[in-house]
Design a protein around this nucleic acid. Structure first.
Lengths: 258, 258
DNA sequence: CGACTCGTTGACTCTCTTCAAGGATAGTGG
DNA sequence: CCACTATCCTTGAAGAGAGTCAACGAGTCG
């Protein structure tokens, strides 16, 4: 029974982009210099196709704590995370919150069902985003089947992750949940070509709790238990070091997981 | 900590179809007589397109308790549920089970990520399925963009449902979970043009428990509470009647749900 | 330096689980 | 047709894991 009232007034304000620091290739504009292109949906496009995509993109920035999209609002845009961390969540009427996912650079945001966003997305860290107007993107998708396929794969991937999370929320103990969470962060960091072990933790304990279906206290206690068991450690920057990957995996993992 | 050992030996046996009772339209074969076509992915296809799809379809039947697809197995086929009920689940190494969804006639089955099924699908009732070989279907999708879009929508829908379920598993009480479950069944029945109120319950208490992240005992007790509160009732066939829709919704629902 | 937020830890509570038993229903075989 | 068994559902009593309430320490910011 967690309320998790964030004090931040989550007003959806998207700053228009700061003037781009003009990358070398003038044709591709910001895309040429984009260091997460290889991770994002853009990675299936040829130079010419990328240029077409670029034309409908707006670069936007979002301050930490601000809302990018809001549950129930008309789904007018989709986004690609270029830099920063995002949390997605749904609320119950009385304020109970469930975080359904965290997004990192390269991740895609905004797939909606009935032209209505099904969840809220809020910046944990200052964000750099690529914004795609939905209408224009849909027109483009009809002409770029590879991009559409890529997007399909993205959604299928999210679905698989959601199913893993259901297993976690429905059947794992607190300690197992935290272990699973750390391993997930580690794997995703590795995919972004970042070190898998001293893990930066931009999200708060409350965020982790609302992601894992626990309370901040229980998350904290679980961290302590894992630390005392020698599975993890913390450095001064509050990063989490994985000391015993096998042990952590044994604790977290289900029958067959990636 | 639920084990939910089902005794049934879940061997994946797909019976080749019984000889089709030859529907009037000879061209469309089984599709012409298919009474769930309007619900399924087929509903976006013209007659000619449907015929192309039909050519790659095999009709199969599955006995109750048998496995249709198995977590970890190579994803060679996709299916459309024509008749019967399916449960999808994932297992932990020690046998704990999480049911990630139930499928009813019209629902689609088998979207996989890395050509590997991410979950097991088991028949609750005897099934009638349309089987699509994945390879052939993929080739066809490239030529039938409408079908691909339809499938995309299907996956997006599943994702949204999964997010709702995460909210349920992470933050709702036992009574709220059961109420949500009943409403979900009711809505889906209505979509299939079946009466939304005396709800047939083909799944066992154990299945419901593993779907809601509870135990059979807690599910049973919650049912009793809802019954005593006058929100639901049961008839002799074990169907659940919704007596107070508003009350049930108030109990179940989050901020903004369909 | 004080006010604030965040994370940690402790003590107690409570919801749900676990363990156990009884009742209902369906299928089987004498 | 009626035991007899097996399975499922329900109910009760006791127990445990996580939640709630509360306090304290550490780091931050104005």
């Amino acid at each position: 029974m967690v309320a998790s009232m964030s004090i931040n007034q989550a007003t959806p304000i998207l700053k228009p982009a700061r003037p781009q620091p003009k990358a070398p290739g003038p044709a591709l504009g910001p895309c040429a210099a984009c260091d997460i292109r290889a991770l994002s949906i853009c990675n299936v496009l040829s130079a010419g196709e990328l240029e077409r995509l670029r034309r409908i993109i707006t670069q936007v920035q979002v301050d930490a704590g601000r809302t990018v999209i809001e549950e129930g609002a008309p789904a007018e845009d989709l986004f690609n995370v270029v830099a920063g961390t995002v949390k997605l969540y749904k609320l119950l009427a009385d304020g109970r919150r469930q975080i359904t996912g965290f997004l990192f650079p390269g991740d895609f945001l905004g797939i909606a069902l009935n032209d209505i966003y099904a969840y809220t997305a809020e910046a944990i860290e200052p964000l750099q985003l690529c914004r795609f107007p939905r209408r224009k993107l849909e027109l483009l998708l009809a002409e770029l089947p590879r991009l559409e396929r890529r997007l399909f794969g993205e959604v299928a991937h999210e679905l698989a992750a959601a199913q893993d999370q259901m297993l976690l929320l429905g059947r794992k103990t607190a300690k197992e949940r935290v272990a699973s969470f750390l391993l997930q962060l580690s794997r995703r960091a590795a995919k972004r070509r970042q070190p898998p072990s001293p893990l930066p933790m931009p999200m708060s304990r409350a965020d982790i709790a609302d992601y894992l279906g626990l309370t901040t206290e229980t998350v904290s206690r679980s961290f302590t238990q894992l630390r005392q068991a020698g599975l993890i450690a913390k450095d001064r920057q509050n990063r989490v070091e994985i000391r015993n990957l096998a042990g952590l995996s044994a604790l977290a993992e289900d029958a067959g997981e990636a």
